[in-house]
Design a protein around this nucleic acid. Structure first.
Lengths: 163, 163
DNA sequence: GCATCTAGGTTTCTAAAAGCAACCCAGCGC
DNA sequence: GCGCTGGGTTGCTTTTAGAAACCTAGATGC
């Protein structure tokens, strides 16, 4: 079996996802949009992001289909635009919650976590968990095994005798 | 109840975590370290990262306690250093798997996912899932509610009449 | 019926971060 | 003592982010 490092780093789903949303601002933009901040000026002011950067991030997210940019007009008002999460965008929520979970446990001060997410139905707290398709509970230090999938790609350069 | 945008953006656990590991390379470095790539040159070559950037990322991760830098010496060899995930670093694995999961579903080509993670015990695939502490199953579009926690902080500036 | 305000950006210029190549140093092997 | 290798650091160039000014179109006020 080939060693891990023989596989192309950029082909990995983690690398591909990071290429799309892995810069300093994009996940924060998505967090705010997920929390109902929909307008350009509100986003700019709440995040403290430069407006040109926000503009380019929203354009990228819209082009990738993670947010929808729609025009709307309230009576007596002029036309506005708003940004909302679309289907694939909503599927990013586990990523946001995984970040939040880790930050709550490792970076929160003695006061406790800055925010809590609850199940809107029952009011209980939400966590991200690893699950095994056989239904086994995976504890704090799960034993995992990585193996190449059908879309794997061997690295084509940089190896001695690489091909 | 105060609106979401009245709370300080930087106090959020997502923002804090992103400030530590939310740049273009850090999560990929952690992915490789988690997969057993432990040496500087191996990381540099597999990732294609500039060596000075790798150096500064590893220093930051070591200082934050996410990786351990240890010296070791094999018989007949000179001293080497290796990097390994430490406790808090291993807790980042759900974040990596959440990225992978999303990428597999949204960015993989028709060939399928580039890699598969299995439970080392039973061989079944691993997924990240949202769970409610009451044990309710949360499906594709969970209804979530965010509320301020004990460590929440109201925004101190930028609001009309803000305080 | 012109000046002003506001949302939603774009342009322009400067500062910070990433990339690239060259260099350095220590220990080993020869 | 000479070169090779791992593990970096230094210095320069390019890319990205940030700050501030500017633009446009439709209310709004006078």
């Amino acid at each position: 079996m080939r060693p891990y490092s023989a596989y192309d780093s950029d082909t990995c789903s983690i690398a591909r996802t990071l290429a799309l949303i892995g810069d300093r601002w994009t996940l924060l933009v998505l967090r705010d949009v997920a929390n109902g901040v929909r307008r350009f000026d509100e986003l700019a002011s709440h995040l403290g992001i430069a407006r040109n950067v926000l503009s380019s991030r929203l354009a990228r997210l819209a082009q990738a289909g993670l947010v929808e940019r729609t025009a709307y007009r309230e009576p007596g008002e002029r036309e506005r635009h708003e940004y909302r999460l679309s289907g694939p965008g909503r599927e990013l929520i586990p990523i946001l919650l995984a970040f939040m979970d880790w930050g709550d446990r490792n970076l929160a001060g003695p006061e406790g976590p800055p925010a809590v997410i609850r199940h809107a139905g029952c009011g209980a707290r939400i966590r991200v968990a690893l699950t095994c398709e056989e239904g086994h509970e995976l504890g704090e230090r799960p034993r995992l095994r990585m193996e190449p999938g059908p879309g794997s790609k061997v690295r084509s350069s940089g190896l001695p005798n690489g091909r």
